[in-house]
Each structure stands twice: as structure tokens, then as C-alpha cells.
Computed example of a mutant assay.
Amino acid sequence: MKRTTLLGIAVLLVAAVAALAWTLAPRLAASGASATAASAPGAGPAVTVTTVAARREDFALELGATGTVSALNRVEIHPQVSAAITRVHIREGQTVQAGQPLFTLDSRAAEVRVTQAQAQLQKDLATLADAERQLARSRDLLRQDFVSQSAVDTNLSQVEAQAAVVAADRAAIQAARVDLGYARIVAPSTGRVGAIAVYAGSYVTPASPALATVTQLDPIAVSFPVPQRHIGALLASLKSGSGRVTAQLPDARGTLTGTLQFVDSAVDANAGTVQVKAQFANPKQQLWPGAYVDVKLAVGSLPGAILVPQAAIIQGAQAKSVYVVGADGKAQLRTVDVVASAGDVAVVTGVQAAERVIVDGKQNLRPGSPVVEQAAAPSGAASRPGRRAAAASGPQP
């Protein structure tokens, strides 16, 4: 009886184990398949990424620098004579034209000197006329043998001496008129008047501080340093007149385009740069002397360059790389060299034109990962033509 009971219990246990194995077999098979798939390289769920097609186009190289705005012409107004100011014709900040009156000085003393010089001239002219008559009379008497030749020579010397006195009188009149002209101070050039340091009634001398300054604002210049390795390109641009310089206005108010005007004759040995100057039309006075401004100077181009967004570049410990989407729809890691860059675009080697470069989502990738592509916004860097390289990121040596 006991044996029969034990045999029945054993049969029931075997049946229960078989039923349990039958139930768990599909789950164990699925779990094994998942583990096998997970161990395969590059497998896993597809990663959503944003891509931009690499473009081939000419890439203009530009040197970027911070320049200093300076006036082409800045004149300090000083009096040439000592006198009191009788009238101020201008106000601070006013724009004046060349020849426009600025100050009037007390000219009464100068007018008196002119009158005195003219009176002295008339007196000496009368004396000269008398000497000439004496010379003519002595010559008549010489022909009649009433006087000697020495008497005639004496009269001739008197005439010549008096003629020199008359010439000196005329020069004195001119000098007096020049002094009189100094009483009227006019603008030497077109420009903007700075602070005025005097008022009507102020007594000024040539040694006094400047009465005012007149600064030319249109056109205006921007000076900035350029690395010495670009001197050849600078001189070529200066000679051909093709040097175009772009200045970024403050507060992102746009840009102004000027021309290269000057390359300095010496290199700064400490900085390894040469100073250059560009000239800009400034009718709206958007550039102000003494201000700093970011400038870019075109120095060449890279024809047929491959452009990708800088956001796509991965900086590794040894090299730079980008992810591209292969023909099989999986991510491929490419090592690249950055030749030049500007803003959000870079010129690289190692990528072909039209290859789809992954910009966003690359942090979730590994080589061989399947991807689901989304096109980047139209403002993507590689989709915009005509991008230019900044100075600090020009062609790598």
C-alpha cells in the first residue's frame, strides 16, 4: 500500500515538472534570443538623429581681429595771435564744413597795424618819387657837364635804397593783413566739433589750450593687427585694390564694408603682427573714433571645400571625428581634419560631398547603431553658402 502511494506521488511530481517546463519554454527561448541580439555589435533600438548634408563649395578665408576706430583727420584749433574772443560761431557737437567760421578774435589792433603799414608805404613812395626826380635831374645836368658822374651815382643809390624801403613796406602790409586774417578762425576741414573750452570775452594766446577740436567722421578708419604670415596676401590686396574689410557694428546693428588702405612698414616683434588700416564710408556716423570693432579681412579662398556644421564635430583625445549615415542606415564614425572654420561651419577632410552628417543625437550613438533621420532646420550651417573663415581658424599648417 505504501509503495503504491509513493509511486503515485512520484508520478504526480513528474507531471507537474513537465507542465511547468512546457509553460516556461517559450519565455526562456525569447530571453535567450534577446541576450544573443544584445551581444551583437551595433544592434539595439534605432536612434533618432538630426542630419545635414555635407556641401562642396568655395570657402572664402577671412582674418578676424578687433580693430580700433580712428579719425582720418583730427585738428586741434589754436589761435595764431594773442587776442580776446569776440564771438563763438559754433556749438559743441555741431558738424561744420571746411572754411566755416568757428571763432572771431578782437581784430582792432591788427587793423591799426595794417593802416599804419599802408601809411608808411605812402610816405616811402613819396620819398621814392622825389629820389627818382633827383636822379632824372642829375642825369640831365650830367649831359650838360654841370655835375659829375659820381653825383648821378649817388642819386641812383638813393633811388634803389628807397625802392627797397617801399618793398619792405609792402611786405609789412602783407604781414599785418595776415595777422588780421588770424582774427577769423575757420574750420580747416569738414568734421564734428568737440568740446569748446572758451567763450566770448576769453583772452587766448598761441600757447593756450586748444579752443576746440574738429574731427572728421566720414570717411573714417579702422586699424587692426594681422599675423605676419599674411603680409604677402595683404600687399597683393592693397596693390590690386581688392582688399575688402567688413566691420561689425556694435549691438548687432549690421555691418559696414570698407577697403584696405594701408599696411605698416614694420612687424611688431613682440606680437608677430603687422598693423593695417581700412577706410569706411561713415555717413550715418555709426563708427566712432576710439571705439573697438570686430573686423574681417578677406585674404583668399578654398575652392571646392567640404563644409559641415561645427556642432557635428566630436573632439576626441587623439583626433576629431564625425558620425555619418551609411547606405545601410547605420552610423559610421569618420576621422576628420578641420582645415578652417568660422562661426558654426567648418571645412573638413575625410567626408565626401552629399554625405549625411549627424548633428544632434550623436551622444547616443556608437558605430553601427541604426538611426532614424530628421532633417536639420534650414538655418543649418552647412546649408548656407558663402560662409567665411575667421582669422584665428585659418588653414592649418
Rank of each mutant, 00 (worst) to 15 (best):
K284H: 09
S82H: 06
Q122L: 01
A271Q: 15
S379Q: 06
P45E: 14
I90C: 05
A377Y: 08
T50E: 01
D344H: 09
A175H: 12
G201D: 10
I196F: 08
R87Y: 03
P206F: 04
T246F: 06
S265Y: 07
R244W: 07
A376F: 04
R139Y: 05
L135V: 06
A187S: 13
A37H: 06
T335K: 11
R87T: 05
A30P: 10
N155M: 13
P79E: 02
H230N: 15
R177E: 12
P101D: 05
Y292F: 12
L307A: 04
L7T: 13
V295Q: 01
S341F: 05
A331S: 05
T104S: 12
T259N: 13
V226H: 02
V222S: 03
L287P: 02
G201A: 10
A247C: 11
R356L: 01
G258A: 04
G42K: 07
R334C: 07
V114F: 00
P397N: 09
E132W: 08
T51C: 01
Q374C: 04
I77F: 03
I313F: 06
K362G: 02
V11I: 15
L24G: 10
A33F: 05
R388P: 08
Q228I: 13
R366E: 14
A71R: 03
K239N: 15
K2Y: 08
N282Y: 00
Q352T: 12
T257L: 14
Q285M: 08
Q228Y: 11
E355K: 03
A312L: 00
L287F: 05
T213G: 05
A377P: 08
R388H: 14
T255G: 07
Q318H: 14
R387Q: 15
T48F: 01
S157Q: 14
Q216G: 08
S82R: 07
G99L: 03
Q134G: 12
G8R: 07
I358C: 00
T5P: 07
V347A: 00
G241D: 04
V372C: 06
L72C: 08
A60M: 10
G201S: 10
V226L: 06
L156F: 10
G191V: 04
S138L: 09
A40N: 11
D337V: 13
D153Y: 07
L63F: 08
H89R: 05
R55V: 02
A167E: 14
A210R: 04
A83N: 06
Q120G: 00
D179G: 03
A19C: 07
T86E: 12
A126T: 11
Q396T: 15
H89W: 06
W22S: 14
Y182F: 13
R74S: 15
R192L: 10
T190M: 05
V338A: 06
I173R: 00
A317D: 15
